[in-house]
Amino acid sequence: MADRADIETLIARTASGDRVAFSALYAATSAKLFGVILRIVSTRSEAEETLQEVYVRVWHTAGRYDADCLSPMTWLITSARNAAIDRRRRTIHGIEAPLPDPLSDTAPGPEAQAIDASDRPRLTACFDELAPDRAGAMRRAYLEGKTYAELAAQYGVPLNTMRTWLRQSLLRLRECLAR
């Protein structure tokens, strides 16, 4: 697996129109992105179409990567997740909820230091400090793109209760991550 610097180099070369670099970027990252998308959309063919959309977009927007201040895999995974959620909500609910666009925020913020993979155990530890059902609901929201309504139904609680759960959990998580 290519490391962070490799992926950044491939994105930079893709931005300059290097097709071999784009193919190498696809080869190095598409399995992870496909895995992320498959968890969110309901069929394999939708996942394949979503993956296409994501890489077509990467080709056209690679030049804006630097300004985003996200680590390269976060940028790619977030693009994949958002595209998959857009598709999921279009097909399942017929609604459109705007999702954060990792490509749209161009002004770098002072706190926007991208974390390294070495910080991942801390995330796991902080999730472990949450009540198991709340941690589970939060994981589902991220990994499966579930809405508050879906999570409420799944956990058998009113929608407002689910929202309160997750809002409290988000604050606890942020406090834990900042420790």
Partner: peptide
């Protein structure tokens, strides 16, 4: 966004 992406591990 960075923090949650850790879940994709």
């Amino acid at each position: 966004t960075e923090d949650f992406t850790g879940l994709s591990d």
